[in-house]
Design a protein around this nucleic acid. Structure first.
Lengths: 234, 234
DNA sequence: CTTGTGTAAATTGTTAACAATGTGTGATAA
DNA sequence: TTATCACACATTGTTAACAATTTACACAAG
């Protein structure tokens, strides 16, 4: 149907999504501090695309809740309030429990093998002190379980909420004992999956999140003593 | 600080949000059929704003999952697939159960009075056959409970998922016996809240959604016999 | 030294023109 | 008649110029 390859037909959409993803990633890894202004001109130079695309990307990230757009002032990385953080954690517990429960129905012994392999990667990265890769592998571990829920919408929502808690990740991961605990957790997950022990799995999902929260709050309390941490007004 | 009222300072943001909300509402009430193209020029005339704003509004609705943007073809109202619908319903059950559970902690006797009043409005609208207002009042009833969860993020997510199921609402509401059942449901809710009966409340939340789903699927099956209902390709 | 004020620069918001692509229509030929 | 192709038109995507607003800074007054 006249749909033949008769031109370049640039893949705008794909390029654009790449920009959004990269920008999102930069925010997630903390390249931009919360409350720091994101100047469109700078971003367009960094990503080598027009301001037009940057503006659109920022709009997307705004509806995702990662940045806040203030008229004539620009975009700032959203500084999730304590209140909001608490709210998100409660929801994450519910959704990750759900995902785990659904996954349990679909998980096979070959899946468990894969999880063991990923878990081993986490361990090796830890021993090599390669924390960058450890974080990636750790994320993969949990993602793999959620993927087995066979509910793509659920996965996306979990990822969305996780993104919104970006400020936590660094705090938690730099907290003493946190990494060691992750390793243990994976073993418990694998054992519970083997034994098809739903109750333990749900408890693990809850503990996993609660633990991250606790570490973050502890960290925050410390910082709070030195820096007043102004709430994000305007 | 130099922030005094020294000019018109148009409220762009507010105007824009209004456009998004109105467009979203038009999709929700079914003014645009799924798979129908939304032509930017037409929309800009309808809303009396520039194409620029329409494009932005469509982008927002895309990330909300209400429309699908296809390069050089434009926006179409997203036709949620059966698969996606099932996925959303599973999540809604979990989230609405959670909201109900949280609400139970905060609900006072004065809240129950308000709920009774809303319930009466639903009943009166039903008797007057004013189904437009009945839908509004019914939505208010459930929203009021969710609001008492004191978790704004949760509320927003529930609303977002509800929006994505827009095609259901008409089906379910025009289904015979559905309205009557809603009335009974409200009484059961009120009684369970009074008695602080968590188990019943969670069951009600689950039934509420499952019931809507069942009605929709039945309706869909009927239509499916006459119209093939092409899955939304591209 | 501090404080306020006005102006210039920087930044964001909007528009209109233009480029790229999709869609439909009618002529032409088998 | 039907299929095919070229062409015009409709629609979407992008850009660059311009308008609105904020921010920075110099400068004067107290």
């Amino acid at each position: 149907m006249g749909q033949q390859n008769r031109g370049p037909k640039r893949n705008y959409k794909q390029d654009f999504q790449r920009v959004v993803a990269e920008l999102e990633n930069m925010i997630l890894i903390g390249a931009f501090q919360p409350r720091k202004r994101l100047v469109e001109k700078n971003l367009s130079q960094i990503f080598n695309v027009s301001r037009f695309w940057i503006r659109d990307a920022l709009k997307v990230l705004e509806t995702k809740g990662l940045v806040k757009l203030i008229p004539y002032k620009g975009a700032v990385v959203s500084n999730v309030s304590l209140q909001e953080l608490e709210e998100i954690f409660v929801i994450r517990v519910a959704l990750e429990k759900l995902a785990t429960r659904l996954a349990l129905k679909n998980i096979s012994s070959s899946d468990i093998k894969i999880l063991k392999r990923i878990s081993k990667q986490v361990e090796q990265s830890f021993m090599k002190k390669d924390f960058q890769n450890m974080l990636i592998a750790n994320t993969n571990f949990h993602d793999y379980i959620f993927k087995r829920s066979q509910n793509q919408t659920l996965q996306q929502m979990i990822n969305g909420l996780r993104s919104r808690c970006h400020i936590i990740r660094h705090s938690a991961w730099s907290s003493p004992g946190f990494l060691e605990r992750s390793l243990e957790e994976h073993q418990l997950y694998i054992n519970a999956l083997k034994g098809r022990d739903l109750e333990t799995l749900e408890q693990l999902a809850e503990d996993h999140i609660t633990h991250a929260k606790t570490h973050y709050l502890k960290k925050l309390a410390n910082e709070n003593n030195s820096v007043p941490l102004v709430s994000s007004e305007v």
